[in-house]
Nucleic acid binder design. Structure first.
Lengths: 346, 346
DNA sequence: TTGTAGGCGTTATCAA
DNA sequence: TTGATAACGCCTACAA
């Protein structure tokens, strides 16, 4: 049974329909649709008549209806482990800025480092018929992978370079970056290099950073020492704790590579409190070019990672696939460059 | 002309339709719909049959179609001035966590502190038929206000308490917080209190913080001095610049209230470089309880603002309006509490 | 260049 | 409790 007489062209919701515009302009809805989506295919007279009606009515196209009908979506789903992590915000910004220019919107959600939660969110996003998916994590449940495959939409992973990409990848290599910094410390002459990272459970970024560290030690001819490999939480307090811990258990340590967030800054503050000179007594290195690391003294040696670029490239490659149907991009892996920044702390 | 035979129950896209589930389970689509949305209204036998079919087919409901048909939306639009601002992330997290529990999703975009850009984004979100809107800024174009009114959807502003709310407000008062901190400094005995904030153009938060500062000076019986009111950009470098500037132009200054982001930390670093003792030569106070401020030495006196709570309450109040139709909440203003945290820098 | 017809996948409504 | 039907608002396909 009808829910509303089909000739009722008044508005109930405050939102007028394309029909209402068409009636007012004395044209068919198709002409209205064309004016809005492919203005080139409509005569100037019609265009003006329609646009005038649009303005007068205050018509707002219904994207839901449009997407449903055209089977095209202008929404991208983004899943990050944790929204309140300043590290991702640059990437989100890059993503957002490029997508916006093409009229795409970002749906964002956080998985809390939990693959099951991620799967759940993927399901929800697929239900919303997002046109593409951006996943920070590269660890997924088999069901999540299956669902994504089945959906056929393009996906970009961008927290790391996984061994078996789901589809496309835009990232730097956590392993290579960690390797590079450790080698850098080795070349500077440090012999007892400790390594701290965020908890590695369900965090392949941390896992790969450890691998890079160990590979570099091997290359340097240093013996790995389990007492010099630490894990901890996020925040400055965690960094303080970690440097105290390693100094206690391995007094001969001469460098600490804090491969996560602001750990190194927390460690530096602790060193200052305890009067451990940096880099004299212990050298400190960090991961990621956070503003803070440049402004403390001594300034902290770190890695500059292409956080913003990752977002930008991710958006571009996704749009190519969606808009231009660039199928040759399927499965492509973009390994972006990073850089060691030598400062006063090493 | 038909785009696909209506009896074609195969899947083209990888996505099956409710129709396919219904056929497989030997029921009507309405029964499938009920099993998925109002399971209580269906017999257990039917429910099981349908759920089995859903599982076998790997059916994923199409939210677009559902929303279009039911005229209900489970999407909330969020517009922030800038995504890469660590201050908002706690609020976004609070929002996200509560919304997720109710099956709502967040669409996020940044306006770049530009009301016209904000209006544009509001238009886009309304086109997407979001069920509600969260705006950090409280400054909007007349057209934006008009569009929101017309749409009838609930809105929460949460960057400040505006004089003329659009609809609902969940925030703390920037004016009151700034007033409280300035009074605190006055009570501690500081006589020449300078004030620094982020640029106040299109930033009513900054404007209100200045008002609070000036009101407190008046209350304290201090004469306002234009040389002691500064504006600057974001980041530690800006904080460094601002303290150097005020020390130069007003040597008798004895306190600097940095009402924005990490300005105070940047100022502290600069003081340390120049050997200006804090708080001996100049006291420093900050806005917002950023982790960093607690960990530097001297630790920095600041305001604890209810960032996470704002997100949480915003989500709750929005959901009440949308789900429960709680119309009595229309126009309600929630003024959340803040707190002065006295530390070593004052 | 413009219009007609019908379908996109779901849910509201009413009848059984 | 279940089902048939039309409608949500737009766009594809085809015809004029």
């Amino acid at each position: 049974m009808p829910r509303r007489s089909s000739e009722d062209s008044s508005k109930r919701n405050g939102s007028a329909r394309m029909r209402d515009v068409a009636v007012r302009a004395g044209v068919s809805t198709m002409t209205v649709s064309r004016v809005l989506n492919e203005p080139g295919k409509v005569s100037e007279e019609m265009r003006e008549r329609v646009l005038k009606a649009v303005r007068e009515i205050g018509y707002l196209p219904n994207h839901l209806a449009g997407s449903l009908s055209s089977n095209r979506s202008t929404t991208i789903g983004l899943i990050v482990p944790s929204i309140d992590n300043s590290i991702y915000t640059q990437t989100v910004k890059g993503l957002s800025e490029v997508l916006k220019r093409s009229g795409f919107q970002l749906m964002i959600a956080e998985s809390g480092y939990d693959p099951n939660e991620e799967e759940e969110l993927i399901t929800v996003f697929l239900s919303h018929r997002v046109g593409g998916l951006v996943l920070h994590s590269t660890e997924h449940t088999p069901q999540a992978i299956e669902k994504i495959r089945k959906s056929g939409i393009p996906v970009v992973e961008n927290g790391n370079i996984p061994k078996e990409p789901l589809d496309m990848v835009v990232s730097y290599s956590n392993r290579d970056a960690s390797y590079a910094m450790t080698m850098h410390l080795g070349r500077l002459g440090y012999r007892k290099i400790a390594f701290a990272s965020l908890y590695s459970v369900h965090n392949d970024r941390s896992q790969d950073r450890l691998k890079g560290y160990l590979a570099a030690l091997k290359q340097l001819g240093h013996e790995p020492d389990p007492r010099m490999v630490l894990e901890t939480g996020r925040g400055l307090a965690a960094g303080a704790e970690v440097v105290a811990r390693v100094m206690q258990s391995v007094p001969e340590v001469d460098a600490l590579f804090c491969a996560g967030e602001v750990l190194a800054a927390g460690a530096l503050f602790e060193c200052q409190r305890r009067n451990w000179s940096v880099p004299g007594r212990i050298a400190l290195a960090s991961f990621d070019d956070v503003d803070l690391l440049r402004h403390v003294s001594p300034s902290i040696t770190t890695l500059r990672l292409p956080r913003y670029d990752i977002g930008e490239r991710t958006a571009r490659i996704l749009l190519s696939r969606i808009i231009d149907g660039a199928d040759h991009l399927r499965g492509s892996v973009v390994d972006l460059k990073f850089e060691v920044i030598q400062r006063e702390s090493t």
